[in-house]
C-alpha cells in the first residue's frame, strides 16, 4: 500500500516537473519571438512544412467529414421532418467543434510528429550542441520558427477544413439527397452567428495551435538522443497533443458557452 502511494506521489511529481519545464520552455520561446520575426524567411519555410504540406490531408478529411455529417444529419432530421435545417446542423458542428478539433488531431499526426522527430534527430546527431558551440541559440534558430509556423498554420487549416466540410455537406445534402438549396444556405445564414460561432472556432484553433506546436517542439527538443528516444518523443507528441487538445476543447467550450 505504501509502495503504491509513493509511486503515485512520484508520478505526480514527475508530471508536474515536466509540465513546469514545458512552461519555462514556452517562456523561452516567447522571449525569442521578436528576434525571429526579423527573419521571416525561416518562418515562411516552417509554415510551408507544417501548413502547406498538411493541406491535402486537411482538405480531403474536411470534405469527407462534411459529407458524412450531411448523411447522418439527413437521416436524423428526416424523422422530425426538418431536413431544411441540415445546413445549420452541418455548419454549426463544423465551425464550432469538428473544424478546430479534428484539424488539431490531424495536425498532431501530420505536422507534430514531423516537428518532434526532426528536432529530436537534430538533438541525437548533436546538431543542436553544434549550434550552441557556434554561439547560435538553437531555441531562436530552430525552435521558435517551427513554433510560430505551427501557430500561423493551425487557424488557417481549421478554416479550410470547415469550409471544405460545408462544401461536402452541400454536395451530399443538396446535390445527392435533394434538400432545397435555398433553405440549406438561408437557414444556415440565419442561425450561424459571426461572433459566437465562427470567431469562437478560430479562437479554439488558435489555442490548439499553441498547444500542439509547443508539445511537438518541447518533446523533440528534450528527447533522449538515441534512435529509441526520438521514436518515443514522436509517440509522446501524438498522445499528449491528442489528450491536451480534447481536454482543452472541453474547458474552452465550457467557458465560451458559459452554461456549466
Amino acid at each position: 500500500m505504501r509502495r503504491v502511494l509513493v509511486d503515485v506521489a512520484y508520478a505526480v511529481q514527475e508530471w508536474l516537473e515536466t509540465f513546469g519545464a514545458s512552461q519555462i520552455f514556452l517562456m523561452r520561446i516567447l522571449a525569442g519571438c521578436p528576434r525571429a520575426l526579423l527573419r521571416p524567411g525561416l518562418i515562411v519555410r516552417q509554415v510551408y512544412a507544417s501548413g502547406v504540406l498538411s493541406l491535402a490531408i486537411i482538405g480531403i478529411s474536411g470534405l469527407f467529414v462534411g459529407m458524412v455529417l450531411a448523411l447522418q444529419g439527413y437521416n436524423s432530421l428526416e424523422r422530425f421532418g426538418a431536413t431544411e435545417s441540415l445546413g445549420v446542423v452541418a455548419a454549426l458542428a463544423l465551425v464550432r467543434e469538428l473544424g478546430p478539433v479534428v484539424t488539431a488531431l490531424l495536425f498532431a499526426g501530420r505536422a507534430g510528429t514531423a516537428l518532434a522527430s526532426e528536432i529530436g534527430l537534430m538533438r541525437a546527431t548533436d546538431q543542436l550542441s553544434g549550434m550552441e558551440m557556434m554561439a547560435v541559440d538553437p531555441i531562436k534558430r530552430v525552435v521558435v520558427p517551427r513554433f510560430l509556423g505551427g501557430i500561423i498554420s493551425m487557424p488557417l487549416l481549421a478554416a479550410i477544413f470547415s469550409a471544405m466540410g460545408i462544401l461536402g455537406a452541400w454536395l451530399v445534402g443538396v446535390v445527392l439527397l435533394g434538400v432545397d438549396e435555398g433553405s440549406f444556405w438561408s437557414s444556415m445564414r440565419d442561425q450561424v452567428d459571426y461572433k459566437d460561432d465562427v470567431l469562437s472556432g478560430v479562437l479554439k484553433s488558435f489555442v490548439f495551435g499553441i498547444a500542439a506546436s509547443l508539445l511537438a517542439v518541447f518533446e523533440g527538443y528534450n528527447s533522449i538522443p538515441t534512435a529509441e528516444g526520438v521514436s518515443r518523443a514522436t509517440t509522446r507528441t501524438v498522445v499528449l497533443t491528442a489528450l491536451s487538445v480534447l481536454i482543452l476543447n472541453f474547458m474552452l467550450t465550457a467557458v465560451l458557452i458559459g452554461e456549466v
Binding site: V52, L55, L156, S162, D193, D197
Partner: peptide
C-alpha cells in the same frame, strides 16, 4: 506554396463569415 496556402486560408475564413453567417 506558402503564399497560396495563406491566401486559401483567408478565402476560407471569408467564405465562413460571409456565406455561412448573417
Amino acid at each position: 506554396g506558402t503564399g497560396l496556402f495563406v491566401f486559401m486560408g483567408i478565402v476560407a475564413l471569408f467564405f465562413l463569415t460571409t456565406r455561412v453567417t448573417n
